[in-house]
């Protein structure tokens, strides 16, 4: 597993928490003796078994603490961080948030989130093209999200690789913007297939781009007929209320005895 995220090996994945240092390392050693009989061994194991186990472990932790974990995925530049900045500012005092930021390099996004007064940890994947459950596990250990809070996990900007890796999230939210092609759901179907909500961002730019809103919705529904769709603009605020209503509807009210 460590080979997947590189966490032990050469320190390629790093975590940054404003005002906090966190280090960990653990090695693997295998000793074995040899006995040379040819043998067929049934394995029957999913390749992502280890990731999926850790994802379930994360999910169990989130469920126990009533944390709503959302995995935000998109191509680079579709406005994930802007959506978070806006959401964290507008809903301050109504919901409690914390954020895990995933990028190959820099703490720029974590710094932007930190500026809103929200608890944030940055994962730098080095050359890695996606977050996995192991990285999120370590990030959660560092950030310790509060009970009954919302945890946003902003994945690496990439519409391909993150689709395969369950992080233990409750919902996966795919974001596209109107400056991208309206055939994007067909070109990158796996991400739309595995998501539950699609946000179409930057609707304020619709008059300037050849983006067919109806066509993108039809294309997205072709790939995933259960997908919910919300159109919004983080710049002029149009449609944000629908996103906030969706978010609030997903936050479970803790049961009182």
């Amino acid at each position: 597993m460590c080979a997947t995220c590189g966490c032990d090996a050469e320190g390629k994945v790093t975590m940054h928490e404003p005002g906090h240092q966190h280090e960990h390392d653990h090695g693997h050693q295998h000793d074995h003796s040899h006995d040379h009989h040819r043998k067929v061994v049934d394995v029957e194991k999913d390749v992502l078994h280890q990731n999926d186990l850790l994802a379930e472990r994360n999910r169990g932790y989130f469920d126990a603490k009533n944390i709503l974990a959302l995995n935000l995925v998109s191509s680079p530049g579709s406005g994930k961080t802007a959506l978070l900045e806006r959401t964290l500012t507008d809903l301050k005092g109504q919901l409690q948030f914390c954020v895990i930021e995933g990028d190959q390099q820099t703490t720029n996004d974590a710094d932007r989130i930190h500026a809103t007064g929200t608890k944030v940890v940055q994962i730098n994947t080095g050359k890695g093209c996606h977050l996995d459950a192991h990285m999120v596990l370590h990030a959660v250990q560092g950030i310790k999200p509060a009970e009954n809070s919302v945890l946003f996990i902003e994945n690496v900007g990439n519409l391909v690789c993150p689709a395969m890796f369950d992080l233990g999230e409750k919902e996966r939210v795919v974001i596209i913007s109107v400056t991208e092609g309206d055939d994007k759901p067909l070109k990158y179907p796996d991400m739309f297939y595995s998501s539950t909500l699609c946000i179409i961002n930057k609707t304020d730019l619709l008059p300037y781009v050849p983006f067919d809103m109806e066509k993108v919705k039809i294309n997205a529904k072709k790939v995933n007929h259960k997908l919910e769709i919300i159109e919004l603009s983080c710049t002029n605020g149009e449609g944000l209320d629908r996103w906030y209503d969706w978010l609030k509807s997903k936050v479970l009210v803790p049961e009182t005895v």
Partner: peptide
């Protein structure tokens, strides 16, 4: 290039 992660997982298993 998530295929590398997949190959590494196969090698591990």
């Amino acid at each position: 290039m998530h295929e590398l992660s997949i190959v590494l997982s196969i090698i591990d298993i």
